[in-house]
Design a protein around this nucleic acid. Structure first.
Lengths: 197, 197
DNA sequence: GTCTATACGCCGATAGAC
DNA sequence: GTCTATCGGCGTATAGAC
């Protein structure tokens, strides 16, 4: 069982890497098997289909992300602090699971056709609701602007945060914590120079 | 010739729509032919390969985008005004060519393997250079902040702008000009409420 | 749990009639 | 310029030996 668990994990990890690099549709079960070090037929002992592998990659990713979001929301903070924390939590998840993050960002049209899409949809809805509730709270207490639709602001932040997996490399001196701080500062304070007053 | 030109255009338009909806790898030449209203063999009278269709969709898109950017840069304006104009020009191109925009945003790993990738690469470099020069000018004249890497700011703006094709629908009362204004205002002034002073 | 061997369909692309 | 017909290859998935 430990062996099977390790093999399953290896299959999921190799698949996520290939899916992220080449796209799901362009990745073959033979490539996955090569990377794992078995023949393609052996994959079907662990998963019933290629789609099942995709589904598990995405589901595990969303479970991790949601658990981090729930931790952020469990603490009493201002909307601004919570927004900063959501950005930082997202970037940390993207750093620890870059391939799964890329798959989820790039392959939504593929994911939507999976047989178990409803579970993914529910998790995605909770993710969105978390962000929107924080933004609405900030509008309500006057710390955020009320002249721009919260959904528009949410989508800009979301896309900027998640697409950072396409260019951010955690190896350099620019840490993920600094990236999160810069992101929050740009979106909240703007890139225009502060008024020298 | 007019007929062939029309047919070529129809093939490009249908291909871009399918590529955007399903991904390039998952779109077959038979699907493209069905959508156009011919049989798949007939496509090869107009294009030597499926990859050639992808290449022309992307190249035409980048040509259009660059021509709009050059118009913006031809006028003497402040960095802030130019940044607003680049955002607006980008969103207008995304509105007029949504499928090609999606293809270019989603399929970079496919595009990078095309035989004629060098031309695409050159155009992409000019796009990036246009944004960066405007941002650098704003830092130089003190209108933009100098405590955050211009490349980081560029990538956040770029991703927020281009990913709007995934959710923005021009049919509603929220016009693309208003979207551009909101985008520029968030990125330059921030979403935090203005100091009531 | 992995391998060998293979079924079966769809893929991009081509040749040649019309 | 489009059609008919088809080729060779590679895709996912399966059956059964070990």
């Amino acid at each position: 069982m430990a062996v099977q668990g390790d093999r399953r994990t290896a299959i999921l990890r190799c698949s996520a890497d290939l899916f992220a690099r080449q796209g799901v549709a362009s990745t073959t079960v033979r490539q996955i098997a090569d990377e794992v070090g078995v023949l393609s037929g052996s994959l079907y002992h662990h998963f019933p289909s290629k789609d099942a592998i995709v589904n598990e990659v995405v589901t595990a990713y969303l479970d991790l992300l949601l658990s981090r979001y729930r931790e952020v929301m469990a603490v009493d903070r201002t909307p601004r602090e919570r927004l900063e924390q959501l950005i930082a939590a997202s970037l940390r998840v993207a750093e620890s699971e870059p391939s799964a993050t890329v798959v989820y960002q790039n392959e939504m049209s593929y994911i939507r056709e999976l047989p178990q899409y409803e579970a993914v949809k529910a998790a995605a809805a909770e993710v969105q609701q978390t962000w929107l509730s924080v933004i609405e709270d900030g509008r309500a207490d006057g710390s955020f602007r009320d002249d721009i639709d919260p959904r528009v602001f949410y989508r800009f932040v979301r896309d900027a945060v998640w697409l950072s997996v396409r260019w951010y490399r955690p190896e350099g001196p620019y840490t993920v914590e600094r990236l999160a701080a810069d992101c929050a500062s740009i979106f909240l304070d703007g890139y225009a120079a502060f008024d020298p007053e």
